[in-house]
Simulated scan of single mutants.
Amino acid sequence: MQTAFINSPLGITKIVGDENGISIISILAEGEVSNKIPKELKEAVTQLQEYFEGKRTDFSFKLNPKGTEFQQKVWQGLLEIPFGKTMSYLDLSKKLGDVKAIRAVASANGKNPLWIVIPCHRVIGTDGSLTGYAGGLWRKKWLLEHENPTNQQSLF
Rank of each mutant, 00 (worst) to 15 (best):
D127V: 04
E69A: 11
H146N: 05
W75T: 08
L130F: 12
K111H: 08
L155A: 09
N7G: 06
A108S: 11
T57R: 08
M1V: 09
N112V: 09
P38G: 07
F61N: 07
E40K: 12
I27M: 10
T131Y: 03
F52L: 00
C120L: 07
K42Q: 14
I24T: 13
K73P: 06
L155R: 04
G17M: 06
Q152V: 15
K62V: 12
A104V: 03
G17D: 09
L114A: 03
Q72N: 11
E80Q: 09
N20M: 13
V45A: 01
Y133G: 05
G77V: 09
N151C: 02
I12L: 06
E50T: 02
L144S: 05
F70K: 07
L130N: 12
I12C: 07
A101L: 02
L78N: 07
S8Y: 11
T150S: 15
L92N: 10
A101S: 12
L143E: 11
E69D: 11
W138Q: 14
T150P: 01
T57P: 00
F70C: 05
I116N: 02
F70D: 10
R122T: 07
G31Y: 12
G97L: 08
K14C: 10
A29T: 10
L144N: 15
V45C: 01
E19F: 15
G11M: 05
M1H: 10
S26P: 03
L114S: 02
D18E: 11
D58F: 11
K62F: 07
H121R: 00
Y89G: 12
T126N: 12
L63H: 08
K94H: 13
P119N: 00
E80S: 08
G97S: 04
F70N: 05
H121N: 08
L90Y: 14
S93L: 15
P82N: 03
A104T: 07
A106F: 02
L63R: 15
T150D: 13
Q2L: 10
S23H: 08
F83R: 01
E40T: 15
Q153I: 13
K140W: 04
